[in-house]
Design a protein around this nucleic acid. Structure first.
Length: 569
RNA sequence: GCACCCGUAGCUCAAUUGGAUAGAGUGUGUGGCUUCGAACCACAAGGUUGCAGGUUCAAGCCCUGCCGGGUGCACCA
């Protein structure tokens, strides 16, 4: 049990004792006050007042007068309609520090997922298209989910589902034949080349409505694995996959299972045959559909009238394939909100088929530009690699400016970590339910609520620790006198609860918000209270203990976000 | 037309899921480096939480209606 929870229980026990048998408050009623000055925990008296038909302020006063501090609670007072509890700093702090230093990297984890297996499908990119900044959301959110669920004890299967079939692929091959037939394909950056071919094809197709039949023919050839089209599909698919794998490696994405649209054809066809037999699916206008009007979800279109499978059909097959391969208890889909309906249809259809595992869509809004959504047609797509290069360039310049004496290799490595932190944090600190309006200038800023700010906090702590005596670093103490110290101390105890709650409601931005707030509290503490300059040995050691604990929590949290940390920057 | 999401400080976003005085970043103004790293800190100005009703001890959050933006809705993925 973590320390905050223990303190809450102590407060709860005190309350229970005060009420006797007449009333038992729930431990969940105990909350954290908005301002730490009010106290560390609070018990609101509103529901009690309602039951007794009395003034909550009077009740709070009465309770506060009746009870005495105990355990981790050091002081109790009433304020307005609240009974506020203050921690006994010494016992609370000692317990907290013991917990953090004993657990180290694993501080904050739990075992709520024990014996449970969860599958997270994310980073499902398409071949034959250039990865762009819009894809970063599924990538970073998915990766965070994988890390988080592992941290709280689940067995996690990280999966990705690559779109290597479909209209976009056929269009790209069509463009390749039409405009590049006599051109030798490039030896490197082949995926970028394919991206350009795709854009050109899409733009050309606006004026060539008759080309649709040619595109369909290409799709049929690929599905039937025949001829020139199939040959080029295989070749170009490899180009894209190589690129995707390079990016995944660069971003350190854990992927246990690779799935491909082209790999679920036969299982999808079997599934559809089964659906038709059971009467769940039916023919309509030559196509195969599932009528979901009863659930208010319209029709789920599975197979086109020419017999080719649609995305929804393949997703059905995929679900069975995943289940057969891993038998997860829960299955998460990190997919953008434009597919809300499609995924609802998928889930309902699977349920009708008796599918039992828990399916959840982790929906997020997509990333747009100031002048509207990115689209291949408009040609206003910001490639991932271009964005990354710009980030790294700025980080490189700033690092070089600060450390002219550093070797090129060290500057290079530092710049990569800084750029990566900026990219990840800017996406993860925002609520996935809201669209991100991408602004390059803002994205390239390393000040304020940014990844580099968090890295900077750790770098400053590391710098102090390098200068501190190794003997004093090993000692631990809890002698604090100022409010900033107390606030920082208590804030560290929230971390396990943050992870626990987030794993349950999957409100992923909470973690980044917490880490930023933690950094702010450290900075404020750092500015007002001397550490190495403190002359009192006990106080000095206490503060060294506090900043070591802060660094540990920050590092643990950033690791969840996929951000590496630096001792110097 | 129907469904879902979003309207909070000039801009970008928070708000413990119905609780205490709606908070941060950025931008603007001011102050702080001979002192532990200024990618920092402190202070100031900045709000009718899109509008109008309703529910209750209490509403940015819930309900109804309207306004504005986005997305999806049968052969795209």
């Amino acid at each position: 049990m973590h320390v905050l929870h223990e303190a809450k229980q102590d407060a709860w026990k005190i309350l229970k004792q005060a009420f006797g048998k007449g009333y038992t408050p729930s431990i969940d009623e105990i909350e954290q006050p908005p301002d730490p000055k009010m106290g560390d925990l609070a018990f609101p008296c509103f529901s009690l007042a309602k039951g007794l038909k009395r003034n909550p302020v009077e009740i709070a006063d009465e309770i506060a007068a009746k009870i005495a501090p105990k355990g981790l609670i050091g002081k109790i007072e009433s304020k307005g309609p609240y009974v506020n509890f203050f921690f006994d700093q010494k016992t609370f702090g000692k317990k907290l520090f013991d917990d953090i230093f004993e657990k180290g990297d694993s501080y904050g984890g739990s075992d709520i997922g024990e014996e449970k297996r969860i599958m997270v499908e994310y980073a499902s990119l398409n071949t034959h298209k250039d990865p762009h900044i819009g894809h970063l959301r599924t990538i970073f959110l998915g990766q965070l989910l994988v890390h988080l669920f592992k941290k709280v004890g689940y067995e996690v299967i990280a999966a990705t589902y690559i779109g290597d079939l479909g209209t976009h692929v056929s269009r790209c091959l069509w463009g390749l034949k039409k405009f590049y037939a006599n051109i030798e394909p490039p030896k490197k950056d082949q995926n970028k080349f394919l991206g350009e071919v795709y854009v050109r094809a899409v733009q050309a197709l606006e004026h060539e409505p008759l080309a649709k039949e040619e595109i369909d023919a290409i799709s049929r050839d690929i599905e039937a694995k025949r001829g020139d089209n199939f040959f080029w599909w295989k070749k170009t698919r490899e180009w894209s996959l190589r690129e995707i794998k390079t990016i995944f490696k660069e971003l350190n994405l854990p992927i246990d299972a690779w799935y491909f649209e082209s790999g679920v054809t036969s299982i999808s066809k079997k599934t559809i045959a089964h659906l038709l037999k059971k009467g769940i699916a039916k023919k309509s206008d030559g196509a195969i559909i599932i009528d979901l009007y009863e659930e208010g979800l319209g029709v789920n279109l599975l197979v086109k009238s020419d017999g080719t499978l649609l995305y929804n059909a393949r997703d059905l097959g995929l679900a069975f394939k995943k289940q057969g391969d891993y038998h997860p208890d829960r299955s998460l889909y990190v997919v953008d909100s434009r597919q809300n309906l499609a995924l609802q249809q998928l889930f309902v259809t699977l349920k009708r088929m008796g599918f039992e595992e828990k399916l959840e869509h982790i929906s997020y809004e997509f990333i747009t530009l100031k002048d509207g959504a990115m689209s291949a047609r408009k040609g206003n797509v910001i490639r991932y690699q271009d964005f990354r290069d710009q980030m790294e360039q700025i980080a490189r310049e700033q690092t070089l400016g600060r450390h002219p004496d550093w070797k090129t290799k060290k500057i290079e490595e530092t710049a990569k970590v800084i750029a990566s932190s900026a990219m990840r944090f800017s996406i993860l600190h925002q609520d996935p339910g809201r669209k991100i309006t991408f602004d390059m200038k803002e994205a390239l800023s390393f000040e304020g609520c940014t990844g580099p700010y968090l890295l900077y906090t750790i770098a400053r702590i590391s710098s102090i620790l390098r200068k501190a005596s190794s003997l004093e670093k090993k000692k631990k103490n809890v002698i604090f006198s100022s409010a900033v110290e107390h606030e920082l101390l208590v804030f560290l105890s929230f971390y396990p609860d943050i992870l626990f709650t987030t794993a349950q409601d999957i409100h992923l931005s909470r973690i980044s918000q917490y880490l930023f707030d933690l950094s702010k509290k450290f900075s404020s503490f750092y500015q007002t209270v001397p550490i190495l300059q403190e002359s009192d040995e006990n106080k000095r050691i206490s503060r060294l203990t506090l900043i070591q604990a802060t660094a540990q929590v920050l590092e643990n949290g950033l690791k969840l976000l996929g951000i590496r940390t630096l001792e110097e920057m």
